[in-house]
Design a protein around this nucleic acid. Structure first.
Length: 681
RNA sequence: GCCCAGAUAGCUCAGUCGGCAGAGCAUUUCACUCGUAAUGAAAAGGUCGAGGGUUCGAUUCCCUCUCUGGGCUCCA
């Protein structure tokens, strides 16, 4: 056995260390700053504690606190401190799992006697956590046999369940809770300050680790909220009490995160919808059902008009279908069997059973099937702004983002297998082009593939379609993640996520192949060989739901719609009553070029009227006074810009009209000349 | 659907240990006629989410429901 060991660092350099050297020692040997920032290490690909001895020949990298991996360690360790605090403050509390999550961590508890946490408890728990952190308790890892672990956690039923599952060979590791891969089970103990690893144990938890060396490394955290959560995510299982928190490597990072949350709250579409008088959810209607006020209505109309215009140019044909249908339609499509729970309850009438429609696809299939189809008609692209109703469970409703009555910008494309790759490609280009017109530039893609346990259609057709989707993404050089087995049973799909102005990701568009509907509705076309063939159907939702898209747009723009979408584009403010006639004239020259302008008379002081316009986030405020009346000019106060006095009226009108025209024409260049196969037959 | 927390004027929010309901903004009226983010005064505005219970008396305490928020679960 050599008395020195050789360690290889990430940059390829090899260093010699005495036997028994730990990752912490390596970090110190490289530099003080690194040693200070180190929270864990990666040893031959495995994350380990800094205090673990290394072996000859190991490849070692130090994990620092300012990386995602490092924050993960901080968060996971903070979760342990949370559990320690709760078990000390609430004797008899059972704890289950407490993983690090994006931006933070949580821990689930079961309090004795069915007690629950209140928001007030958070401050008390947080104070105790800070005491534990101040005590600088070391995290000490040890490995025990399953029997030993069961003894340690004898009064912790959730831990017992995890140990039993892991030791019975289940390969499922509970959210990083425990490392059972070696047959032994790892546990981490926190011991009191100054007592060292052999001192009295304050807290012990099952854990795979790694953890920071001691609780003193933590502290830039905040507890955020309490919530209910099912044990193991099973809604038939017990409901646990979950505490969420966030933790970072520094107070600056913590503060930045909390500010980001505050910014998101300011942009909340429900708040903005009320403030800007766009829409409301009257309780008289019931949950998840919105009414659109004039200002929200005009924006929605503009979105829909633009969508229709683009679809018309894109070779789609417009169809309309009813909101109610007999149950037989959904028996044919198979939806009733799978999704009856998500549909509004049946209505009995005329000796039939009727349902509100939860989707448009089966009706579009009936349109396809209404007469014999020729291959010359394909691809057939049907488009509908179809309003559907789904019985979303009460607890899932969320403003416009999860709603019970909504309008899909739904299209169904029927094509041949040969046409599929080209069709998917032009669909994706079309989708992105339209999204860009609404100010979204940053897209991510997910490709969902066959769930081997639940699918219809032949393996060949799945393979063809999946290849088509994949090559479309590859050809365009788009990065995408593959979600194995995530496809619906009827076909593979591409989902498009957009990133908004403050970096949040929203799933909007979807392009889904469907081998099920054509089968169930026995759709056929006559090919050039004079034989009957089954078409492939592609579902394509662009905005997904108009309501949801509107909500996302509202948050993206923080209520400040771009000029072409703003409910009021130009507000004209006469300085005094004497200028009202001229103000009206200015407004008329805006409406003459298709703009939306209003005039607020001089009953309130100018400053107050300007402030009101700014709070309404209007793109342009025009102030007109004596000088302007005399010279036919306006004072331009643009949103987010500098005031410009004495702008000639016709100059402003042209500038305004050009801006609007440009915005709506922007994305049109791409499909001004539709591909030959995109033209209606 | 489940857990927790809520619901007071159009909006944001005080308040009532069970005894005639409060502010600011918004609205209306009057005065002010003003050059780029809040002029002054007055008025009006409420079944204190709905229904039931306890009580001499309930907006307040209890129960049920509806709706909302945060989660969980679900999402064709």
């Amino acid at each position: 056995m050599p008395s020195t060991i050789t360690i290889t660092l990430p940059d390829g350099t090899a260093r010699e260390y005495p036997e028994g050297t730990t990752a912490a020692d390596v970090a110190s040997s490289i530099g003080k700053r690194l040693a200070k920032a180190a929270v864990a290490a990666i040893d031959n690909g495995d994350e380990i504690d800094l205090g673990r001895p290394l072996h000859d020949g190991d490849q070692v990298a130090i994990v620092t606190e300012d990386t995602e991996a490092g924050r993960h360690v901080l968060r996971h360790s903070t979760a342990h401190v949370l559990a320690q605090a709760v078990t000390q403050l609430f004797p008899g509390a059972k704890f289950s799992i407490g993983p690090a999550i994006e931006n933070g961590f949580y821990y689930d508890f079961d309090l004795p006697g069915g007690k629950t946490f209140s928001e007030d408890d958070l401050a008390v728990i947080e104070a105790r956590m800070r005491e534990i952190i101040a005590a600088d308790q070391p995290f000490t890892r040890s490995e025990v046999s399953p029997d030993e672990a069961l003894r340690i956690f004898a009064d912790q039923p959730y831990k017992v369940e995890i140990i039993e599952r892991v030791s019975s060979g289940g390969d499922e590791l509970d959210s990083g809770e425990v490392d059972g891969s070696s047959g032994a089970i790892s546990v981490y103990r926190n011991t009191g300050s100054g007592q060292g690893p052999g001192g009295p144990v304050d807290f012990v938890d099952l854990c795979r680790g790694p953890h920071v060396p001691s609780t003193g490394r933590l502290g830039h955290f905040a507890l955020q909220k309490v919530a209910g959560a099912y044990w193991r995510g099973n809604e038939k299982g017990p409901m646990l009490q979950r505490i969420y928190g966030t933790a970072w490597e520094s107070d600056a990072a913590l503060k930045a995160h909390l500010e980001q949350l505050a910014e998101a709250e300011k942009r909340d579409h429900r708040k903005l919808a009320t403030e800007l008088d766009l829409l409301s959810f009257p309780s008289e209607l019931g949950g998840g059902l919105a009414v659109w006020h004039p200002k929200g209505g005009i924006v929605r109309k503009l979105i829909e008009d633009y969508s229709r215009m683009r679809h018309e140019r894109g070779g789609y044909e417009f169809v309309f279908t009813p909101h109610l249908t007999k149950s037989t339609l959904y028996e044919t499509s198979g939806h009733l069997a799978w999704y009856a729970d998500g549909m509004y309850p049946p209505m009995e009438m005329d000796n039939g059973t009727y349902y509100m429609k939860p989707m448009n696809c089966p009706m579009h299939c009936l349109i396809f099937r209404s007469r014999q189809r020729s291959y010359r008609e394909l691809p057939l692209r049907l488009f509908e702004l179809g309003t559907v109703y789904r019985y979303e469970r009460a607890g899932t409703l969320h403003g416009l983002l999860r709603i019970r009555g909504f309008t899909q910008d739904d299209s169904h494309i029927y094509c041949t297998a040969e046409q599929l790759p080209g069709e998917i490609g032009s669909l994706l280009d079309f989708v992105l082009s339209v999204l860009r017109a609404f100010g979204f530039e940053d897209f991510t893609f997910n490709l969902s593939t066959k769930d081997p346990d639940k699918y219809v259609g032949s393996d060949e057709i799945w393979e063809t379609a999946t290849d088509a989707l994949r090559s479309v993404l590859d050809d365009r050089g788009f990065e995408y993640s593959i979600k194995e087995g995530d496809a619906a049973f009827y076909g593979p799909k591409i989902d498009v996520d957009v990133r908004d102005a403050i970096g949040r990701s929203w799933q909007l568009s979807t392009i889904q192949c469907d081998f099920n509907h054509p089968e169930r509705f026995e759709l056929e076309y006559v090919g050039s060989d004079n034989q009957r063939h089954r078409p492939i159907m592609v579902h394509r939702a662009l905005f997904g739901s108009i309501e949801r898209f509107f909500g996302v747009l509202l948050e993206h723009f923080a209520g400040a719609f771009p000029t072409w979408l703003a409910p009021v584009q130009v507000r004209v403010l006469p300085v005094s009553s004497a200028h009202e006639g001229y103000a009206d004239q200015v407004a008329r020259s805006i409406t003459a070029v298709g703009g939306r302008a209003d005039v607020i008379r001089a009953v309130d002081p100018l400053g107050k009227r300007i402030r009101a316009a700014k709070l309404e986030k209007l793109p342009y405020v025009l102030v007109v006074g004596d000088d302007d009346v005399a010279a036919t000019t306006v004072g331009v106060n643009p949103r987010g810009g500098e005031v410009e006095r004495g702008v000639a009226l016709d100059v402003f009108v042209k500038r305004f009209a050009d801006e609007v025209a440009e915005a709506t024409a922007l994305a049109l260049d791409a499909d001004n000349a539709p591909a030959p196969d995109a033209l209606p037959a």
